[in-house]
Write a protein that binds this DNA or RNA. Sequence first.
DNA 1: AAACGGCGGAACGCAACCGTAACGTCCTGG
DNA 2: CCAGGACGTTACGGTTGCGTTCCGCCGTTT
Lengths: 188, 188
Amino acid sequence: MLRSDITVAIRDAVMYELAEVGYGRLSIEAVARRAGVGKTAIYRRWSNKLEMVLEIVSDVAGRSVPLPDTGSFAGDLQLIMMIVNRALQHRIASQIIPDLMAEAARNPQIAETLQKALRTHQQAVGESLVGQAVARGELPQGTDPDLAVDLILGPLYWRLAVSRSKPDEAYLEKLMAAVTAALRSTAG
Amino acid sequence: MLRSDITVAIRDAVMYELAEVGYGRLSIEAVARRAGVGKTAIYRRWSNKLEMVLEIVSDVAGRSVPLPDTGSFAGDLQLIMMIVNRALQHRIASQIIPDLMAEAARNPQIAETLQKALRTHQQAVGESLVGQAVARGELPQGTDPDLAVDLILGPLYWRLAVSRSKPDEAYLEKLMAAVTAALRSTAG
DNA sequence: AAACGGCGGAACGCAACCGTAACGTCCTGG
DNA sequence: CCAGGACGTTACGGTTGCGTTCCGCCGTTT
């Protein structure tokens, strides 16, 4: 019977190390050190660095975020952008996500895991957001939910991960207006 | 007098290794091996892995892309999106860029170098694109060039690096229309 | 009371790199 | 023709990490 408190300590340590040094330089020994745990305890649970990281990360990423439902497209959009903006500014997320995405570019297993964890959820959010807006008549029929997701997440991610500048209130408002106009233009 | 053919071989090897294993796991020995060169030749040129990578990468990234000037906003936009789309699908670029961006999240020197190399150029393109369009009356005055860049690069990058799916013709057209509508909506 | 199982710790052999040094070779400029 | 410099090769001691093994400790179960 593996002790759950030890498992939790290891999970936390993995996330921390992942943020600190990235997947490439993550070492089992460092994880054990940080978790205050023997290497044995880790190898008793996973047989691999890859296996360990995949299990832990997909578990964390799988926690579903509630679908937006504020009653209006503008409200939903604002909520999503706030959540994403906040999430991407968290130190751990803002370091782990780009790192794993880079790693996914060369490791198919990581790519698959990440897609299952992220893509599925994104599609659900996109379909919910767009579907409701179309039903309300706020967006034209035939609006592409995937395009909507790209238009919302893309610029935010680009700005936060690449330009590395905090979007301020004014920027978020401009972006919201831009996205709204873009999606409204998709006339059938 | 350092031999330039050797320098070139090392540069190529660094780019290749960077794409293959990423910055975190890049080793001088592997670079030397791939370049068919002694470690000494590398240490004669740079004193560090960091210094070496920074010099080589910023050199490559600094090569300026010509500013778009097709005579119309739609043409310029299409050209930019085609160039970016193509560039991001190149195997080396599509692996090195996310990797360095992830590394930039924890190494200020890399972040700074990357920003100087990328941001400056992006701003120039954005200002040129938007400036000309405004002058032609195709976009309202006061259109934000930075927002324009985010709207163009963000979704493309997100789709290519995160979703890992090739944008097809139809998608690119939709995106173009969306971006155009978004920017037009920025009424003074 | 005894057996069991997870635990931390220590050590193992192995592999990869680090940064440096010494050696002999080849090419070039004077 | 010769000196100098850049080169590849080999080797060095030191570090880090791997995945495994053995030990002794301790709480739980039986």
